[in-house]
Design a protein around this nucleic acid. Sequence first.
DNA 1: CTGAAAGCGCTAACAT
DNA 2: ATGTTAGCGCTTTCAG
Lengths: 336, 336
Amino acid sequence: MGKKISASRVTADDVARAAGVSRSVVSRTFTKGASVSAKRRKLVLEAAEKLGYEPNIAARVLAGKASNVVGILTGPLLNPFLADLLDKLSDGLREAGFLPTLFKVDTASDAKSILPLIAQYHMVSTIVMGISPSAQISKFFSGQSQMPIILNLGVLRDVEAANISTDHFKGGMLAAQALLDGGARNPAVVTRQIEAGIYEERAAGFRYVLDQAGVQCTSLQVTEGSYQAGHEAMLRLSKSEKHPDAIFFGNDVMALGGLDALRIDLGLSVPGDVAVVGYDDIPSAALGAYRISTIRQPVRKLASMAVAAIVDFENSGAADLTTSMIAPAYVPRDTI
Amino acid sequence: MGKKISASRVTADDVARAAGVSRSVVSRTFTKGASVSAKRRKLVLEAAEKLGYEPNIAARVLAGKASNVVGILTGPLLNPFLADLLDKLSDGLREAGFLPTLFKVDTASDAKSILPLIAQYHMVSTIVMGISPSAQISKFFSGQSQMPIILNLGVLRDVEAANISTDHFKGGMLAAQALLDGGARNPAVVTRQIEAGIYEERAAGFRYVLDQAGVQCTSLQVTEGSYQAGHEAMLRLSKSEKHPDAIFFGNDVMALGGLDALRIDLGLSVPGDVAVVGYDDIPSAALGAYRISTIRQPVRKLASMAVAAIVDFENSGAADLTTSMIAPAYVPRDTI
DNA sequence: CTGAAAGCGCTAACAT
DNA sequence: ATGTTAGCGCTTTCAG
């Protein structure tokens, strides 16, 4: 019990000695674009292989090479949309040669305590997603020599960072149009209250199209984006004076809860009695028993743009703090 | 466009100068358990605060301090169970002062290419989860001076690593017992074929209890653990000679697909005509339209034990390569 | 308790 | 193309 693990590490000097060359040659061998004769390179590679040498990143970074680690400050991974985004992000980052390190927090206020930590690691970039970037975070960014990226948090005016996001206003518009096309006369929208205005943007786009069409809209705001919250919101909505015949849920998880309330608790038919649209297009939205019509976020595009921004930053040395809004798409299924 | 970001960093020397002390004092101030007079400590802290100093981790590690980064080699995060596990793991790791960095791969063979990368970072530990630890990975571990942890991959004989897992055999037993208690006469099990034997362990436990009870069991193996796979498996099962009246799906996602096949495609009632048990207890299993009876994996426990193992390793300097199997629990819902 | 000095392993001029 | 040298920012003896 308690197996001792060999702690000795093989250094470039060891390899140099074994290969009968200087340390520089070893370093160059492992630096792409450096000049080493084929003969010595082979010598070094063989020695390295035999000794099991791997360059020490800490030393490399300290010696002035850019670190290739990018921080990901994310909200709860129980959120299927975030998990998906993280998945795509790690793929993209890895392909581009970056190493994602995770700072997961449950609330925006948790994030504060993590900021100093992030600073210590001299990341190339840190990507913020799934939590509202408070003033605190914004201020932190402006003091760092790294590329700050805010991912999918909608329109943000006060943050100095590259802002890459789904166009949530547009998403809301698509939802409204779909519902209208489906014959909605009395729509409602349930949004979630969070610092970042993404749910509000969705709702605003929704109402905008409705206004244009001269249709009134009921709004309901809940504090969580959960199944429970969607369920309760639906029940509450059904008790209001004007029974809505079409509901736009701010995300799919809430739509799931709302649908169950509608069909199981209220005994209504969807889309017969009430039409429903969700948002995100998480896997559960496609489940046979739900098949929720929803607004699909461009996860892959979001991820690849974030990676591209970091690559650009490395090449140019300057952060391009542009805002990019990517249009989502309507996915028709069986709830409209 | 293209905002230049200030690249200058504040070093311990800067702080020392500003505080009128030597660099050593600054270092000690930031090393817990070092001796610095209250007066100078205050001086240093103030100067550090004013200049926005954060110790450079790369330098610290290079100078001999243990790195606090632990690698997580994980399978696809689209797997809700893995996402959940990762979520809990990052929380635990952070509380214990570790920094999780992510190596996400889609298949076990992808993992090979990542191994050298992991070596470069001199992690304290790396945790493998959601992919089958091939011989390649095993061999890699044995050469490293870090704590290797295999998380939730079942019984593994050939790997030199701490093995922390749900007791999948036990899980299978629970599933069988539940189905038997529900009156199953003609059960079936659908497992997934992967290198690591976890699905096979579940099925083995399942069959073991059935054998004891003198009940025959149909087995079906699929290549993916997806909704689609579960759906197709169910359809196939229904066409076989002996129509099963109880199905154990190797995971909840497959159970979801199977349930839809049962109710929507086959027009059968669950649990009236056929009983179903899943495995994992992912959020979707609890959805109103499904409410799958399932075997819940001890995610929190899994995560905390992994963290504890790393903490132990840091304290003792020796890796405790014990195998720990944690019992899952049966969660009765509406499909039995 | 404090400061001086010696590295940790690597890269990047700088001379060959 | 190669070797030599000087750091990167920090921790840690070692004297004082």
